[in-house]
Design a binder for these strands. Structure first.
Length: 409
RNA sequence: GCGGGCGUAGCUCAGCUGGUUAGAGCGCUAGGUUGUGGCUCUGGAGGUCGCCGGUUCGAAACCGGUCGCUCGCCCCA
């Protein structure tokens, strides 16, 4: 039996890593005032297709679509934002601006798997709606950084920042860029030739050496910014600098779609192969309206849990249980009674199902037990239990009453 | 969708230019230890050599195809 290509089972060790990342992230996001939400894993195709555009790669080749028995066309979500925007509109939440949401969700894209890329992957994300001020952008960047800091991976990552300006600035720039690139049309990579027609801004982050050479003397986007766009970016930079959030300006960092505006940022690591982006986001002022809502601005980020997991140096360790060991078969019933009692008190208690004392002790050691309780009816008759500290090897008698206290300590 | 590398035990890998019962370490398991783990010693289980076809007296090895994994391109978390 093989799993579907690009999907992975989370075995106990990895499961623990994922839950640890989510737990830390939610703690941070909630401290920043974001409320956790969840949306369905699938939506009507339109929910994703409309904002991304039929021509986009995600819609044209990466979306998992479902034709259900009622004749509806559905799609597994390829990213988090569109579903949350739909949630906002469907539930009348546009009345309560501003609003801050966060989530940890599985996403699906039909792509060729490689390092840091799977067909089912998991994203942590935040969306902040209803705020036009750059303080919202700063807050979103700050919460992202704080998550990476709390997970102790911020030292492997650097913040790339850019602005793509408002729609007006971008229009002006796009014309200048296209005009410039036309002069080199025959030297561009095959991909970029296509992009020149479809989405010229995307050429800016081409990995092709020839393209990069051509881009060296291309017009700069920042020179086309109108005063409003410039002021917005300067404002954001000022907040980041005041808060000592280090960043490097990367004028090649872009987003292709028209509903994006102003801020674009990515936390990038060199330790992840070709997919270095760990946490990325930006401002999407046109999106809610595009999806049929009011003209509500938004800014947010998405972050890949699998990518963060690859950077973690400190793996979380599982709970260390106390293992109950009956001395002989006659003690088994009493041992199970103790197991049930201690578990009612919320203690992590383990007990094997077979084996002699030696065997059970070995198993307990392998399971990383903190304590073992060696139980015999004889000791129990005197209200005593033998408690073994598996780290020090010390073993001593404790009364039944004081046992829970010893274990909690 | 396109290109490179790789498929031998649960894991990491050996297996010389084709030669008969396919190996190691780790892990798993049973015992040395009839009331005590981590160390050590000794046994044991576990593989249609990814799959199909071809070449050959003979294929894990060579050839073709296929599936899978992996890395990169496109794109993106």
């Amino acid at each position: 039996m093989q799993p579907v290509r690009g999907t992975h089972d989370l075995l106990p060790e990895e499961f623990l890593v994922h839950s640890y990342i989510k737990k830390v992230a939610f703690e941070v996001m909630e401290n920043f005032g974001f409320s956790g939400v969840d949306t369905p894993i699938f939506e009507f195709l339109e929910v994703f297709a409309r904002p991304l555009g039929d021509a986009s790669d995600i819609v044209s080749k990466e979306m998992y679509t479902i034709h259900d028995k009622g004749g509806e066309v559905l799609a597994l979500r390829p990213e988090g934002t569109a579903g949350v925007v739909r949630m906002l509109i469907s539930n009348g939440l546009q009345q309560e601006m501003p609003a801050k949401f966060c989530y940890a969700i599985p996403c699906f894209r039909y792509e060729r798997p490689q390092k840091g890329r799977q067909r089912q992957f998991h994203q942590i994300g935040t969306e902040l709606f209803g705020v036009s001020s750059f303080y919202a952008d700063a807050e979103v960047i700050a919460v992202g950084l704080e998550i990476l800091k709390s997970l102790k991976v911020d030292n492997q990552v650097r913040l790339h920042l850019n602005t793509i300006g408002d729609l007006e600035s971008r229009k002006v720039y796009r014309e200048k860029l296209v005009e410039y690139l036309r002069g080199y049309e025959n030297d561009l990579s095959p991909e970029s030739k296509i992009r020149l027609e479809k989405n010229p801004m995307r050429i800016l982050d081409s990995k092709d050496q020839g393209d990069r050479k051509i881009l060296e003397s291309a017009p700069l986007l920042h020179d086309s910014l109108n005063p409003e766009s410039r002021a917005f970016f300067d404002g954001l930079r000022n907040v980041l600098e005041t808060q000592n959030i280090a960043y490097t300006i990367d004028q090649k960092l872009v987003r292709g779609l028209d509903y994006y505006s102003h801020t674009v940022f990515e936390f990038i690591s060199d330790n992840l192969g070709a997919q270095g982006t760990v946490l990325a986001g930006g401002r999407y002022d046109g999106l809610v309206k595009l999806m049929g809502g009011q003209d509500i601005p938004g800014v947010g980020f998405g972050s890949g849990i699998e990518r963060i997991a690859m950077l973690l140096t400190e793996k979380p360790s599982p709970k260390r249980p106390t293992t109950i060991i009956p001395v002989s078969a006659e003690d088994e019933e009493a041992a199970w009674s103790l197991v049930f009692n201690l578990r009612k008190q919320g203690l992590p208690i383990d007990m094997g199902y077979s084996g002699n004392l030696s065997k059970r002790m070995k198993k307990a050691s392998k399971n990383n037990a903190r304590y073992c309780i060696v139980l015999s009816k004889g000791d129990l008759a005197n209200n005593q239990l033998s408690l073994k500290d598996m780290d020090s090897g010390d073993q001593f008698m404790v009364s039944v009453e004081e046992l829970p206290l010893r274990l909690k300590a």
